[in-house]
């Protein structure tokens, strides 16, 4: 098998477990309880969406899995190993603003590959082109970031995070800034790519419909302090259409729960 084929072969998705994680933030004199005794496990190859209003700690949890932040108590484990730093097995797809403007499209995708040992220059280029094609941007490989539309930039960000072939893909509200049309297109693409590349995906969003469309499971968070309130298994065939009636049922069920928790919180 050639090195490139070896590099592109599917890796086994990893299993995540979050055990009794708590986290406080202190800003000046204000102390916020970002996460309170949160436990969650994510199966190999599962697509889990974390939903909740802002301040519920869902992004903090994602950063902990990424190894960019650490819990004050409790542990985050991938494949049974404690997360102590960022690693290529867990890639984060940030919002579009995290692309490097001094590199063109292929330069951005190559960034992570260059840090991955074992590939020659020519092989890296081949691997990068594979992912650029996968997200449908083959014609734009040499383009500069500022020349692309918001949707295209998010595709580049996706290709960049897929390129080092991680076992877990972490996505932090990646489509929040896009218009509805572009988003719908990307929902289709992300599902196809997920099936093609077999990743464990943790997807943070505050858009309930988006969560129901993408996730095998939707985990509902409530804020102050950040806690997991409820989980919903979405049992719909894929690929899913965000406008389908059955999906709308799930979405309204989740929305109802979300509102209920907000109400109990106000009564506290």
């Amino acid at each position: 098998m050639s090195t490139v084929a070896e590099e592109l072969r599917q890796v086994t998705p990893a299993k995540l477990s979050i055990e009794h994680v708590s986290k406080w933030f202190r800003e000046g004199v204000v102390q916020t309880h970002a996460l309170d005794d949160v436990s969650l496990s994510v199966d190999e190859g599962e697509f889990v969406c974390l939903v909740g209003p802002s301040g519920c700690g869902k992004s903090t949890l994602l950063n902990m899995i990424a190894g960019l932040e650490f819990p004050d108590s409790g542990t985050v484990l991938t494949e049974g190993r404690k997360v102590t730093e960022p690693g290529r097995d867990r890639m984060v797809m940030f919002q579009e603003s995290a692309l490097f403007p001094w590199l063109n499209v292929i330069g951005n995708v190559l960034f992570g590959l260059k840090l991955k040992p074992g590939l020659k220059e020519k092989e890296r280029l081949e691997v990068a082109m594979y992912y650029i094609q996968l997200v449908g941007l083959a014609r734009y490989a040499k383009s500069n970031i500022h020349e692309l539309s918001g949707g295209m930039r998010q595709r580049v960000a996706l290709a960049r995070s897929l390129a080092p072939n991680p076992r877990v893909l972490l996505m932090d509200e990646p489509f929040a800034a896009l218009d509805a049309m572009t988003r719908e297109q990307l929902y289709g693409d992300i599902q196809t790519i997920w099936e093609a590349r077999k990743k464990t995906i943790v997807f943070v969003t505050h858009n309930v419909r988006e969560a129901a469309c993408l996730g095998d499971r939707v985990v509902l968070f409530s804020p102050h302090p950040g806690r997991i309130r409820e989980e919903f298994k979405i049992e719909l065939p894929r690929p899913r259409d965000i406008n389908s009636a059955s999906l709308a049922n799930y979405a309204s069920e989740i929305t109802t729960a979300l509102k209920a928790y907000r109400k109990t919180e106000e009564n506290d």
Binding site: G67, R88, M91, S97, A98, F100, L115
Partner: peptide, 23 residues
């Protein structure tokens, strides 16, 4: 955000300074 993104891709120390912060 640039530095965080670079760190997740395996960039550390001098590499981050030369490949990310400087450009």
């Amino acid at each position: 955000m640039y530095v965080r993104a670079a760190r997740t891709m395996g960039s550390r120390g001098m590499h981050t300074w030369i490949q990310v912060i400087l450009p």
